[in-house]
Write a protein that binds this DNA or RNA. Structure first.
Lengths: 221, 221
DNA sequence: GTCTATACTTCGATAGAC
DNA sequence: GTCTATCGAAGTATAGAC
């Protein structure tokens, strides 16, 4: 009779009766986000999930498919919690301050679990050598937000609520800071206390928003 | 008699009579910056350098030492072209516009060769899983510039040349955009025409600088 | 200092018993 | 669907002839 204890997953989560496929998925998310895709072996994932490496191939065709599944999961979750357009235009009437506050909040709400946070880092890490991920980053996390904010600034200018500055430039002024904070939190400072880093990041974003608002608001006198 | 042609380096540079150690170094820079440290083998580097893999170990103890040497080279070159403090304070008297223009130019001048550009990308890529590189990025490319600009803004405020906004926040407003552009050029858009991307990046930086300047300049009336 | 040859390790993936 | 066992490929690094 063999001992099974050696194969027990180090991750407490995976000791539960979660389906094997989910154990594999979660273990992969955990390890990929820590060390990057290349530095994690199928053996490691299997060990973390508490199974043998051969068994992984009963659930995922190969290692790359596993990564693809993770990215697809992120995309789905990310767009699922995308609030309808109307809710956002509601804030419009309340002036720029409210829009900015809500803008950050709504975006951050879409990464509201540890799992999503981990995949978020994985995306940042793997962007440089995975074309699918890079395309996703460019489209969904850079171009779309930029286009959205540009549109918003255009509207605000049209309604005479802010100074008539080139809305494309304003969009960059606003959103580039968010990208900087992603890079800062998820790559430059990641090993340190993550929650603290995020808290600091949100404070920085608030400062940034206030400064930008002050720069473009119309003088009341 | 064997044919040597198969082992010829694909890199034209390495066909010249450059010392072997330099050929290895340059090949490594080239490949590491393209595919990342993990995705490049000693075999590949040797092939690119036009030698056998065993010969590499006559010049570098191991693969990691080779990476370390590249980072050290970057650090040295980067600080070598660091202009003396006086030159910068000279611009001070000429007002904020000149300072901002020169600030970007002086910084970009320090990465003035293809080799330095490549290592720059390598640093961006490897920051997430190499502690030495990450420390360098945090210190030399984030904290030091931030501290420098904070000091500058403090001085400008003291001289009554700009609005009295928190200089730390101003430093972030200014420099975070540069970090964003690094990320944009060296990771998000890298495969596309690099020179074009850099040109666009510098234009964006100019727009950013102009906007910031407009935001903090004292009203003349 | 470069070459050939090879030791040693780890990887992704598969086959087949249960 | 999980296990054991194993294959072939690719990786780093070393030894020794020249």
């Amino acid at each position: 009779m063999k001992k099974n204890s050696e194969n027990k997953a180090t991750n407490i989560q995976n000791k539960t009766k979660k389906p094997t496929k989910e154990k594999i998925f979660d273990s992969a998310v955990d390890l990929f986000s820590k060390k990057g895709y290349n530095d994690v072996s199928i053996r490691e994932i299997a060990k973390e999930a508490g199974i043998r490496e051969g068994s992984i191939y009963n659930h995922y065709k190969n290692k790359e498919t596993l990564l693809d599944a993770i990215i697809e999961y992120f995309k789905t979750e990310f767009n699922k919690s995308n609030k309808p357009e109307e809710e956002f235009t509601d804030f419009m009437s309340q002036g720029p301050e409210v829009i900015f506050e809500e803008g950050v909040r709504l975006y951050m709400e879409r990464i509201n679990t540890r799992k999503m946070e981990k995949i978020w880092r994985l995306i940042c890490i793997e962007t440089y050598h995975n074309d699918k991920i890079r395309e996703f980053f460019n489209e969904e996390l850079l171009e779309k937000p930029l286009a959205g904010w540009e549109e918003l600034f255009k509207t605000l200018i049209g309604k005479n609520m802010i100074k008539p500055v080139n809305p494309r430039i304003l969009a960059y002024e606003y959103w580039s800071f968010a990208i900087f904070l992603f890079f800062d939190c998820y790559i430059l400072k990641y090993d340190d206390d993550f929650d603290f880093c995020m808290k600091e990041g949100l404070e920085k974003m608030t400062n940034h928003t206030k400064f930008l608002l002050e720069s473009i608001k119309l003088r009341t006198n």
